[in-house]
Amino acid sequence: TGIVNVSSSLNVRSSASTSSKVIGSLSGNTKVTIVGEEGAFYKIEYKGSHGYVAAEYI
């Protein structure tokens, strides 16, 4: 489990890349469940599926 540490919002992406499609966003202080790690990204549970967020902001 981690907490989103941004002042505005954090993009949730379809894969572990900044060039991948943005599938949603999370606001600051949102609690997320981390299920894996790929490079600089965490794989998280997101809306019944999975998404990827930049690990530096969690």
Rank of each mutant, 00 (worst) to 15 (best):
S9L: 11
V12L: 03
I58A: 01
N11I: 15
L26F: 04
L10F: 04
T33A: 07
S15R: 09
A40G: 14
A40H: 09
N11K: 13
Y46F: 13
V35I: 14
T30N: 06
F41L: 03
I23D: 01
I34F: 03
I23L: 09
G39T: 03
V12N: 00
N11D: 15
Y52F: 10
I44Y: 01
G24N: 01
I44S: 00
S20C: 05
N11F: 14
E37H: 14
S15T: 10
Y42Q: 01
N11T: 13
N5L: 11
V4K: 04
S9R: 13
S8H: 15
G24Y: 04
I44L: 02
I23V: 07
A55M: 15
G48E: 07
S25W: 14
V53D: 00
E45D: 07
Y52E: 01
I34Y: 02
A54Q: 15
T30I: 07
V4Q: 04
S20T: 06
S7K: 12
K43Q: 06
I3D: 04
V32Y: 03
K21A: 13
Y46W: 11
G51K: 02
I58T: 02
R13K: 08
N29V: 06
I58C: 03
F41P: 00
V4Y: 04
T30K: 06
K47D: 10
T33D: 05
E37L: 15
S15W: 08
S19D: 14
F41A: 02
E37T: 15
S20W: 05
G48D: 09
S14L: 13
Y46S: 00
E37F: 13
V32C: 04
V22W: 06
S17F: 07
G36R: 05
G2W: 11
S17V: 05
L10D: 02
T18L: 14
H50A: 06
V35G: 02
F41V: 02
I3H: 09
V35W: 07
G39E: 05
G2K: 06
A16Q: 03
N29C: 15
G36D: 07
V4C: 07
G2N: 05
K31E: 11
N11R: 11
S49N: 09
K21W: 08
V53F: 03
T30F: 06
K21L: 11
I34V: 06
E45G: 04
K31L: 14
T1E: 11
L10R: 02
K21Q: 12
L26C: 04
G51A: 10
S15I: 05
S14R: 09
S9N: 10
K43C: 09
A40F: 08
S20D: 03
K31S: 09
G28D: 08
S27C: 14
G51M: 02
V6A: 10
K47T: 04
I44W: 00
N11G: 08
Y57G: 10
T18G: 11
G2T: 06
G28P: 15
S15M: 08
Y52L: 00
Y42I: 06
H50W: 15
E45P: 04
R13N: 11
N5S: 09
G2E: 03
G28N: 14
S8C: 15
V6W: 07
A40S: 12
S7N: 11
S14P: 05
N5K: 11
V4E: 02
A54N: 10
E38L: 07
F41T: 02
L10M: 06
E45C: 14
T18D: 12
A55E: 04
G2P: 04
L26H: 02
G39V: 03
K47Q: 12
I44E: 00
S19E: 13
Y52D: 00
V6R: 08
S9C: 15
G24R: 01
S20R: 04
G48K: 06
V35L: 14
I23S: 02
A16H: 04
V22S: 06
V35Q: 05
N29G: 15
E38W: 07
T1D: 08
I44P: 01
I44G: 00
G28Y: 14
H50I: 14
S25T: 15
E45M: 11
E37I: 15
S9V: 11
K47H: 09
T30R: 06
E38H: 08
S9D: 09
S49A: 13
L10H: 03
S49K: 11
S20N: 03
S49Q: 12
G24I: 03
S9I: 11
V53G: 02
G36F: 04
S15N: 09
Y57C: 15
R13M: 15
N29H: 12
K21N: 11
S9Y: 13
V4H: 03
G48M: 06
L10N: 02
R13H: 15
I23P: 01
E37Y: 13
S8L: 10
V6E: 06
G24W: 04
K47M: 13
G39N: 09
L26Q: 02
R13A: 06
T1G: 07
V6D: 06
V22Y: 05
V6Y: 07
E45T: 08
G36I: 04
V35T: 07
N11E: 15
G48N: 08
L10T: 09
A54M: 14
T30G: 05
G48I: 03
A16L: 04
S14K: 12
T18A: 14
G2R: 07
A54P: 15
K47G: 12
E37N: 09
Y42M: 06
S19I: 09
E56I: 13
S17H: 09
V12F: 01
S9Q: 11
I34W: 04
N5W: 10
S20P: 01
S25Y: 14
A54V: 13
T1M: 11
S49P: 01
H50M: 09
G36T: 05
N29S: 08
K47V: 05
K31W: 13
S9T: 13
Y52V: 02
H50R: 04
I23T: 03
I44T: 00
G39L: 05
A40L: 11
S20M: 03
K31Y: 12
T1S: 11
K47Y: 09
V4T: 07
T33Y: 10
N5H: 09
G48C: 06
S7H: 12
I58K: 02
N29D: 08
I44V: 05
S27M: 13
S27L: 14
K47E: 12
S19T: 14
S14H: 11
E56W: 07
A16M: 04
K43A: 05
